[in-house]
Amino acid sequence: MALTIKEVEHVAMLARLSLSQQEKETFAVQLGTILEYASTINQLNTDGVEPLDHILPVFNVFREDQVEPSAPREEILSNGPLIEDGQYRVPKIL
């Protein structure tokens, strides 16, 4: 079943995507189809099955609390689309 345009808009808002009307309509149908297929997993009884959130049999992987040199500022900022006073400039928040 297709998603509603409102649902698509809500998800797009969460994902910070501005979609055209055309995209919204296409996604509504496509996501509906994909989700319907994805829902086949709900045919499976998973009572008592622990979700598998980490596949590796490994725990407690740490680094020591040791300061390492940071990146040179010019280097780390070199990909920044808009830099001012050694900082990333962004338009107003509200």
């Binding site: 990909n79 920044g80 689309p81 808009l82 962004v90 338009p91 928040i93």
Partner: peptide, 18 residues
Amino acid sequence: VRYGLRDGQADNVIDMFS
């Protein structure tokens, strides 16, 4: 913000992101 394509016209950050 830090790299990659950016809409330079947006006048607020939410529009800039989206």
